[in-house]
Write a protein that binds this DNA or RNA. Structure first.
Lengths: 360, 360
DNA sequence: GCTCGCTGTGCGAGCGCTATCATAAATGAT
DNA sequence: ATCATTTATGATAGCGCTCGCACAGCGAGC
């Protein structure tokens, strides 16, 4: 007599229905090995295949099984993420992206604060000593010479994110800051603005220079002479934006639009405008850069350049993983992602004459 | 008895030399299964056999491989973390905490976005179908009736975080919202404020009610009569804060301090105050709740209540793990963590005289 | 044309352990 | 003694994943 064993599920095992690498493989129509390669950011996978697999991963909500993975002998990577509070909105989005990607690949992320100052070297050295496999540097650390020097000297694979000019030794993820600033400025010009104020960012960050260049380029494109009294220096902080905006609006013939190098300073500009009784965008168009959470928090919501921050940090983790796991150093050491100009409520055509109330 | 020394393995290169159950079995002259039984203290092993095996274990200094064990056994947990972008700063901190704890316990975390809207049920159902063992719900999802209903109906163990009143079926992690609001209000009273405005939060979130209660309690403690004209309803958004603050400051005898139920609305209050030519904190004290990134972004930085977000999410993972591993529901189903009142620059003693509306 | 090398992909074999079931040995009942 | 029942042990088959290869395609060099 034969007892028929009860089989709860058609497929395998004694387990709960957690999707496995085989499920992903089946859905994507590839072998499990290929899925494994995608997860580990190895380089011998065609882009189209990689996309298909990633789609399947997303659809199944798959996450690799830790136990199986370490059993099977994968080396466990630990990546360091050093930050030095730039704008906290930026940081949080950055973290979300990198944590997400790290989770996908089951990589441990060691997040540590590293204030710029005299002991920054020590923080980096300690992190290296603790046996980290690679490091990710978001702004503003990505432009810190001393941090980079330590990392390069120790030959620790590093990815810098959103810097204007990455060192040759590091991989980099960025957007075209110059192009984005140029597009935004062009947008303002097309709206009819001729006197466009610009609040530049922290001069220690290379991206600041790029953005200013973009602004100047667009002006040149439209044959609008560059007026240096329309440019003030900021530091990317809200508070510096307050001063910069005040300075700009204090001028004899103030600008009809202000393009701030980031959202924090744009938000500060809106605050200053309001304090002065100016309507935004009626009396003053304000736009920012980054599309951070702040852009949609305040009112009016900011027209800004959307940087895919989360995607950038995700890409950083992926790139670093690839460099470490990939058999050879990858060729692609510099990835540029796309930005988008997002129109919201803080821009409008300039008023010709004293306020005529026009609906939309 | 004579135990033959273990011969080095001829096998693959990825072996790292740690003794395995097979080594023990060979040395003891039994099968791996018997060794496994000894290790797991099962009862169907003859004492003499057990002793031999134990001797072999001791000699080899064998320790079972954790990864292999959880792979083979059925006990690897997967926890779902559903979020619906509240504030990205909140989320990232939440993620850091839970990921950290999940890593410690060798547990997998599946993170998924679940926008509130008509397909929220579907997201939850999909997650359940994908074989999740338990779910963690940070705000605002922790107060979503429809999400909770699906989860409860499917009998999925759930931990809600930071809700005012957790459903009986769920475990919960929270801070004492009422106590925190009470402490903040008391702080304001001690500063000398008597007319304290309050902006309440989204009525759909239970924490809102708790905070209002705390405010009232502190007033009662100080024998200050509750004046409902000093309370306005907000929705936790910056924009709602704008309207609420305007309403409060429009009153005949406006408050000398405004306590907003979160930082976003407090920031809006600061903006409104500035627009009206009021100095913060000179003419108006403003304080918030949450200690989100915004609190230190704007100027002046906000005095607020700090919630230990990362610790709360860590605790959530830990609690859920306990509930799932221990077969029966644990006794402690509700954990309350400590908050801290953080003083920054947005509070001060009130001016003696009613604030003259002076344009700065 | 033919090797050579390369890249992208798949197959099969484990990683160390436990679940399941079969088997061998020991015990009891007839 | 025979058979049924209990106990002790082992063989086998995965858990979910990655490793070492093999192999198909494809352009370049002779």
């Amino acid at each position: 007599m034969s007892l028929t064993p009860r089989k709860p599920r058609a497929g395998s095992g004694r387990h709960n229905g957690a999707p496995t690498i085989a499920d992903v493989a089946a859905l994507a129509g590839v072998s499990t090995m290929t899925v494994s390669r995608v997860i580990n950011a190895e380089n011998n996978v065609r882009d189209s295949t990689r996309e298909t697999v990633n789609a399947a991963i997303g659809q199944l909500n798959y996450a690799p099984n830790r136990a199986a993975r370490s059993l099977a002998g994968a080396s466990h990577l630990r990546l360091g993420l050093l930050y030095s509070n730039p704008s906290s909105a930026y940081l949080s989005e950055f973290l979300v992206g990198s944590l997400d990607q790290a989770g996908r690949s089951d990589i441990q992320l060691v997040v540590e604060k590293c204030e710029l100052g005299d002991h920054e070297r020590r923080v980096v050295e300690r992190m290296i000593a603790s046996g980290i496999d690679g490091v990710i540097l978001p702004p503003p650390l990505c432009d810190s010479r001393s941090v980079l020097d330590v990392l390069i000297a120790a030959k620790v694979p590093t990815v810098v994110v959103a810097t204007g000019c990455p060192p040759a030794e590091c991989a980099a993820i960025s957007i075209d800051d110059r192009g984005a600033a140029r597009e935004m400025t062009r947008h303002l010009i097309e709206l009819g603005h001729a006197r466009i104020g610009f609040i530049s960012g922290n001069p220690n960050l290379t991206a600041s220079g790029q953005r200013l260049e973009g602004y100047r380029a667009a002006l040149a494109d439209a044959s609008i002479p560059f007026d240096e009294r329309l440019v003030t220096a900021g530091l990317f902080t809200y508070r510096s934006g307050l001063d910069a905006a005040d300075e700009l609006l204090e001028r004899d013939s103030p600008p009809s639009a202000i393009f701030a190098s980031n959202d924090d300073m744009a938000a500060a500009t809106v605050a200053v405008a309001h304090r002065r009784g100016l309507d935004v965008p009626g009396d003053l168009t304000v736009c920012g850069f980054d599309d951070s959470a702040l852009a949609t928090t305040i009112w009016p919501e900011l027209t800004t350049i959307h940087q895919p921050i989360a995607d950038m940090s995700r890409a950083a983790v992926e790139l670093l993983t690839g460099m470490l796991r990939g058999k050879r150093a990858a060729d692609v050491r510099h990835v540029t992602l796309d930005y988008t100009l997002i129109r919201r409520q803080s821009d409008a055509a300039p008023r010709r004459r004293p306020p005529a109330r026009v609906k939309k």
